[in-house]
């Protein structure tokens, strides 16, 4: 098992470029203007990766920021979730959008099943409990 990153490994781009790989396995140094002009760098190459978010989570823990770390961990699970799914779940989480607890539980199931987003799913399940308790499923006009 690899050693956890610490604040000494930060910023990764300068201290640990060896750890950095893009979605398609490119290194930071490959992301040049020349390569972009040649068509070898697409927007997809400039996206964050789940690994990078987990690494930042380790650094955040080392810096004494556990809640920030948990957000990065949840985010690492959302990297591969398509934009429309994300916006759909966000909409569902707004007050009065879900008709009942099961709508949110379905969303959690989707995140857990299709995208392996365990922590994010648990977070949505927690929301389902709270919404039921606070009457947030009631219809809003």
């Amino acid at each position: 098992m690899s050693k956890k990153l610490t604040t000494r490994d930060y910023p990764l781009a300068e201290k640990r470029p060896d750890l950095v790989r893009t979605r398609h396995g490119k290194k930071l140094e490959d992301l040049t203007l020349d390569a972009l002009e040649a068509g070898d760098v697409a927007l997809e190459d400039l996206r964050i990766t789940p690994e990078a978010l987990r690494q930042q989570a380790e650094i955040a823990v080392a810096a004494g920021r556990p809640t920030l770390a948990r957000n990065f961990e949840r985010a690492s699970e959302l990297v591969d979730v398509p934009q429309d799914v994300i916006l759909g779940i966000y909409e569902l989480l707004r007050p009065g959008r879900a008709k009942g607890k099961s709508d949110l539980l379905d969303a959690a199931k989707l995140l857990r099943g299709t995208y392996k987003a365990e922590q994010m799913a648990a977070f949505i399940e927690e929301a389902a409990e709270v919404y039921e308790r606070r009457g947030l499923f009631s219809k809003r006009f």
Binding site: I48, A52, N71, F72, R74, Y90, L93, P95, A127
Partner: peptide, 25 residues
């Protein structure tokens, strides 16, 4: 709570949106 709902969000919806931003770097 009432202001939050009137703002058309909840702590969970806003937290989810925050996480979504992080997931997009």
């Amino acid at each position: 709570e009432r202001a939050f709902i009137d703002g058309d969000d909840t702590p969970w919806s806003k937290a989810f949106l925050s996480t979504a931003y992080a997931s997009r770097g």
